[in-house]
Design a protein around this nucleic acid. Structure first.
Lengths: 211, 211
DNA sequence: AATACAGGTAAACGAACGGTTACTTAGAGG
DNA sequence: CCTCTAAGTAACCGTTCGTTTACCTGTATT
């Protein structure tokens, strides 16, 4: 992709993330780049095509990012489709890496904000939002926690419930980080939370019938 | 407020909540009510005035709702500004009532969705969103938990951290409820969470150095 | 019966929207 | 040197935006 085409994408995403798709105009996208809106149509055939191109790029980046930072299940050649030997520390590191990605990576952060603004306009956007940022991660973590519970690495409890309680602060802190801009504090709170979570749900330190 | 004026407010809010303030047009607001957009100006002097009226009404309703359902601190005449004798069960009931309010009450649910869509457009909306739905409730709960910890009704831990872990699933489930529409299931998950929370942070059942 | 007015309509306003067109221009390749 | 093309501009298209205006029409008051 040419430099200009790429910079149009980024400028458009930044406006979509702040104002929403409809409220961001082709003129404002072009204006931010120091060109006129007519020039945009040399690179994309419509406003919608820019949007579609953003979504396509996010899919590519997300796939790439998952390949690099996924919890080990994909790195165990012996049993690639099983969740084996995943430790609490693996999950914690993965969580912190994901938080940094969704807040520090400009493309990811803007894409997330854009989805936040578009989620009520169409079922497709709602589904995308859920699978990227809400229900999706919860059920992904539930699978991991189920496996950990089965090997006794996590206290016995409903894995979906555990996943929700583990993930929810991540989700809340994303929004707080957006509004306050205090990334350090949010990440610290998140790490404190994940540490507490595995401490409190460690089957070796839990003796009673707490869950 | 006249019936027409009120119904304009509700119709406008419903559109603001789905499309955002900018993307919702005066024509669509009027059309949904079976009148022409010119008639809207007999009741409100501008589109912005409708929006301001919505915010003002939300402030009134929220104040009223807080007065009715607040955690007991306001009902103790002897010490109105102190958090005394608040039990875990009080907090759990308050939480469930708040969840039902923010999902079942049409005005509150639409207002919350509207703020979600407007939060990145102005600092004022971001502040309103935070104080109503995110940081606000967390610090409110932190105050309550601090008092409970001091009287030994809650395990010793950073009250802000406790509040975040308690509130975050509430926040996540609001969004999931919006997208899936499965209010029963979300409320059940929330109640399961609040029960687990107070069970795991009960100083009488916690014996070790878990927090 | 005459008057005032609240609440509606239809049409128009200038501005901005997404998109198109005709034209210019700088540079690459033969 | 000529030609082709990619990338830009300015002006315009039809539509819709928020807002204003002139007009109508029941209903209540005097």
């Amino acid at each position: 992709m040419s430099d200009t085409k790429e910079s149009i994408l980024l400028a458009a995403l930044k406006l979509f993330a702040r104002d929403g798709y409809e409220a961001a105009s082709m003129s404002s996208i072009a204006g931010g780049l120091g060109i006129t809106k007519g020039a945009l149509y040399k690179h994309y055939k419509s406003k919608r095509a820019i949007f579609d191109s953003i979504v396509a790029q996010m899919f590519r980046e997300d796939a790439e990012h998952s390949r690099e930072h996924a919890v080990p299940e994909h790195t165990y050649e012996q049993a690639p489709s099983e969740y084996r030997e995943i430790t609490a520390e693996n999950v914690r590191e993965f969580t912190a890496a994901q938080f940094i990605y969704w807040t520090e990576d400009e493309f990811a952060a803007d894409f997330r904000r854009m989805l936040t603004l578009e989620q009520y306009r169409s079922g497709e956007m709602a589904r995308l939002y859920g699978s990227c940022i809400a229900e999706g991660p919860v059920s992904y973590l539930a699978d991991i926690f189920r496996a950990m519970t089965e090997r006794g690495a996590l206290a016995a409890a409903d894995p979906v419930q555990l996943a929700m309680e583990y993930y929810a602060p991540f989700f809340l802190l994303l929004g707080i980080c957006d509004r306050t801009g205090d990334r350090e504090r949010c990440l610290a709170q998140l790490n404190e939370h994940t540490a507490r979570f595995f401490r409190m749900n460690n089957p070796e330190t839990i003796r009673g019938d707490l869950s």
